[in-house]
Design a protein around this nucleic acid. Structure first.
Lengths: 214, 214
DNA sequence: GTCTATAACTCGATAGAC
DNA sequence: GTCTATCGAGTTATAGAC
C-alpha cells in the first residue's frame, strides 16, 4: 500500500467518522443541534477541519438524507408477495416503520428545507433511489390494474397518491403526536384497501388484502 | 374614552402591527427571515420593544399559525353541499387551495417545529379551530356511512386518514415541486372517491361524487 | 411605562499561522 | 492537515435612560 493510498484511506475514515457522529447527533438531538462546533468536538478536531471534508453543514445534511432514503428503499424492497394488494399493505407498514424508527432523518428528507428535499430527489449523488422506491409502488399499481375494466388513474398517479397518503400519516405523527388519535398503521391499511378496491372494484369479494400482522 | 383605554388601544395597535409585518416577512421571505431585528426595523422600533408585546419569536410564530389555521377552517366551512361525497371533494380542493395560497404559513403550522405544531393544536389560545375543522370531515364521513352495511372504520379514523392524505399531497408539493409529477388536485379527487367508495361500496353506481369544476 | 442601547450567547464560515 | 483567531450574523434578554 503506497503512501498516497494510506493518506487517502485515512482521509476517508475521518470523513466517515464525521458522518457517523453527525448521524448520532441528528438522531439524539435533532437537526438544530447538528452544528459544526458540536461535530468538531465529538471527533476531537477544530471546527475548521470539517470544512476540509465537507463544503458546508448543508452537504453533511444531504449525505445523511441520501443514506436515510437508501434505508427506506431497502425496507420497501424487502416487502415481497405475489399478490400486489398484499404487497401494498406491506409497503404501508414498512414505510411507517421506517419513519418511526428514524424520525429525525425522515424530517430532514421531507419536512425541513425545500432545497434539501430537492437536492435529495434531483442530485446525481442520490443515485435515483427515490425514483426506484416509487417504482416499486408503480409496479404494484400496474399489477392491480391488470384485468380491471377501466382505469381510474395512471399507475404513477396512484403510486404518488398512495405515497402521499403514507407521508401524510407519517409526517402528522412526527409533527404532533396528538394530531392523529387513531393508529397510523391501521389507517394506512384502510388507505391501502381503499386504493386497491378503487383500482379493481370487481375483485373486492375475491381478493381482499390480508391485514398485516405487525 | 379614558386615558387607560387610549393607552390600551395604542398598545393593541402596535401589537397588531407587529403581527402584520411579521406576516409580510413570513409570506415574502419565509420563516427563517422572520427575525426580531427585521420585525423591529419594519415597525421602526428597537428589537427589545417587541418583547414588550410578545414573549418570544416563537410566540409570534404561534399567533401567525393560529390565524392561518383559522383561514383554513373558514375555507373548509365555505364548502357546502347536501351530498357528503360532493362535500368531500370540495374539502379536498379547498384544503389544497389554502396550502397553495399560503405556503409559508402552512409550512409553519405542519412542517416546521414539532413544538409549534403541538402548540397550535393543544394551546388554549387556538380555540379548538383544528378540532372544528376536523369535525367538518367527521360529519361528512358519518353521513356517508348512513345506510352502509358495514363500517370499515370509525368516522374519526376516516376523517383523519382523509386529512392525512390531503396533507401528504400538500406538503410534498411544498417540500419539492418535483416530488409529484401528477396534479395534486386531481390526485386528491381520486383519494376522495376512493374513500367514498370504500365507505359505502353499495352506492358506487348511484351516487358517484361529481368532479369539481375548479 | 416605553424604548434605546447593549450584553451575552449562539451559529457558519474563513484567513492565515504553524 | 490542523488549529487559532476572528468575522459577521443570528438569537434572547436586561439595565437603565427618558
Amino acid at each position: 500500500m503506497s503512501t498516497v493510498d494510506r493518506r487517502t484511506k485515512r482521509k476517508q475514515l475521518l470523513r466517515q467518522k464525521i458522518l457517523d457522529v453527525s448521524r448520532d447527533i441528528l438522531l439524539s438531538q435533532g437537526f438544530a443541534a447538528l452544528t459544526m462546533r458540536r461535530v468538531a468536538e465529538a471527533i476531537n478536531y477544530a471546527p475548521a477541519t470539517i470544512y476540509l471534508h465537507f463544503q458546508s453543514r448543508e452537504q453533511i445534511a444531504e449525505e445523511l438524507c441520501f443514506a436515510g432514503l437508501e434505508r427506506l428503499y431497502e425496507s420497501l424492497q424487502a416487502v415481497t408477495g405475489k399478490n400486489a394488494a398484499t404487497r401494498l399493505a406491506g409497503f404501508a407498514r414498512a414505510y411507517l416503520e421506517y419513519a418511526g424508527s428514524d424520525p429525525e432523518t425522515y424530517r430532514l428528507i421531507f419536512m425541513a428545507d425545500p432545497q434539501l428535499t430537492k437536492a435529495v430527489f434531483t442530485h446525481r449523488d442520490s443515485g435515483g433511489t427515490g425514483e426506484a422506491a416509487l417504482g416499486l409502488l408503480v409496479k404494484a399499481m400496474e399489477e392491480l390494474q391488470v384485468g380491471s375494466k377501466k382505469r381510474v388513474a395512471k399507475p404513477i398517479e396512484l403510486a404518488e397518491l398512495f405515497w402521499a397518503g403514507l407521508h401524510g400519516l407519517a409526517s402528522l405523527r412526527l409533527a404532533c403526536s396528538q394530531a392523529l388519535t387513531g393508529d397510523e398503521f391501521r389507517l394506512a391499511q384502510v388507505l391501502a384497501a381503499a386504493i386497491t378496491d378503487k383500482i379493481s372494484p370487481e375483485r373486492i369479494k375475491e381478493q381482499r388484502p390480508q391485514r398485516s400482522k405487525g
